[in-house]
Design a protein around this nucleic acid. Structure first.
Lengths: 281, 281
DNA sequence: ATGTCTTATGGAGCATTGCTCCATGAATGG
DNA sequence: CCATTCATGGAGCAATGCTCCATAAGACAT
């Protein structure tokens, strides 16, 4: 009884005529609410998004807001979807695999999400690009990590997951994975992706701002030190890696993980019949 | 200012004398609270865990509870840790790698978390055992998925993560991965693990009970059908895999993903110098 | 213009929740 | 027997999500 729609689900352009009559007045849009929600989340953290904060920024009442969104969770989902879509759409829709650029192991390191836009390369590159897009989105919007995690568990096949899955699935297909393994393979990638992105971020205990570089270093330092003082019987491994964890690079590690999974995929599904022009190694 | 401890952190056995005088009365223990919290979560879902529900079950007041736990989030973390620890401790602490049982690809499939207890096999088997332990814990406690995700994002190096990391790290070490890659490799595994476990579960929209097998089938069916009616331009991949997603086995897919990552690891870090008696493939 | 119907708005108010504060009980130590 | 510390139970506050409703603001027919 919670999920009952309080408003007939916004069917885009119902009557053909008076298309502009739809937004005759409409000072308050669902889109505008989502937009402001993202602003609020970005500016003041995930706890700052309350109905009252929204009514303040939008100079309206709660009733008006609920006429458009129906639910707080729904708003959060919409906000998440918006940001994710933006991060993902910064890439070409059509995966035309043409140019060869083998491994390209270290090129992936340098370029940001922006650089991923135009150049259509290896399926591997495409996957890395998607991953990095998400990674950068999470660092740009600290609240996104938590929301991704929540959306993923609460609504495993909601719009957010679907978008990511599709973006990962296409290059997986281009990789030459046998059709029967498409679902499983893409799942594995997405699972790693989400696991990794959700841990990335917030290296200070604070709820505000992305935490400066200095704070991050300080955090890693204290954490590393704390690890070295753990019980050697209970946590031998943690103690052993305390040192390398102190000066690891999140982004680099993230990419290494991706390559690990990619290697697993290409090893289990060697090379299909490569399109002429692509040397198969 | 949130994190201020309202009580001098329970340092186990402070004064040597009167060890039993510590719990002279003490009808209400931190442990008992955690225990009841888990019961509540198991029985009525994650929304059912409120202070008032606790005071009801424990026949006490909120003040008494807060004297022991100080925070709701802290209680949730403790509950999560308790369940995770139980799931993980159902395995031998010392990773004595001795017996050879190559691949053992399909043996891992059949045995449950219980069967993982005694037999110490390949590092790969150990990793699978840990993973399955977590997997089964999540299916046994539906609320665990969400909590794992939250703990993981909110407190990336809290006790929960640490425990899992340690359990995964040891076999990784035994796998022969070069020391410099321990941290990164274990991270990749843990990330996949958490990503996968957090999506697994709750195939019905309900907040109660694990959802029967029939419900699950029905859910998968409708989801699959919905996928096939997506826009072919926006979601070609999703449409293509709608069929195989209908009748996939969560557990099997989970293991396949693990094997994918494991293959990646052993491929990138071939074989160290195998202890005499282990044929290296 | 005028009246009516649908669409949209602003805000008062309710139920619930986390948490603090405090008056009090109970055991111990002097 | 008193004083001190440990522990409890509960009243009450502040914040939040959400519902309900009075009402404004077009659109449309007459």
């Amino acid at each position: 009884m919670v999920d009952r729609c309080s408003k007939p689900v916004r069917m885009a352009a119902m009557a053909p005529r008076t298309r502009q009559a739809e937004r005759r007045r409409q000072v308050l849009t669902r889109e505008r609410i989502i937009e402001t929600a993202v602003e609020l989340l970005d500016a003041e953290g995930e706890d700052a998004l309350t109905v009252r904060a929204l009514t303040g920024r939008l100079a309206t009442g709660s009733g008006a807001i609920y006429w458009h969104i129906g639910n707080m969770g729904e708003l959060l989902e919409a906000a998440t979807e918006a940001v994710v879509a933006a991060a993902l759409d910064a890439r070409p829709t059509e995966t035309g695999r043409a140019r060869e650029s083998d491994r390209a192991r270290e090129t992936g390191r340098a370029r940001g999400a922006a650089g991923a836009r135009g150049a259509v390369g290896t399926p591997q590159d495409d996957i890395r690009a998607v991953a990095l897009g998400l990674f950068d989105a999470v660092t740009a919007h600290p609240w996104l990590a938590g929301q991704l995690a929540i959306q993923f568990t609460r609504n495993p096949w909601g719009p957010v997951t679907l978008r990511i899955f599709e973006s990962i699935g296409r290059p997986v297909r281009a990789l030459g994975v046998p059709r029967a393994d498409w679902f499983t393979t893409a799942s594995a990638l997405v699972h790693y992706l989400l696991g990794a992105t959700t841990q990335t971020r917030r290296h200070a205990g604070d709820d505000t701002v992305p935490a400066s570089e200095a704070e991050r270093a300080a955090f890693l330092d204290t954490a590393s030190s704390a690890w070295q003082e753990l019980d050697p019987d209970d946590y031998p491994f943690i103690r052993a890696i305390a040192e390398q964890m102190r000066d690891h690079d999140d982004r680099e590690q993230f990419l290494t993980g991706i390559d690990l999974v990619l290697t697993g995929i290409t090893t289990l599904h060697p090379a299909p019949m490569p399109p002429a022009g692509t040397r198969s190694r």
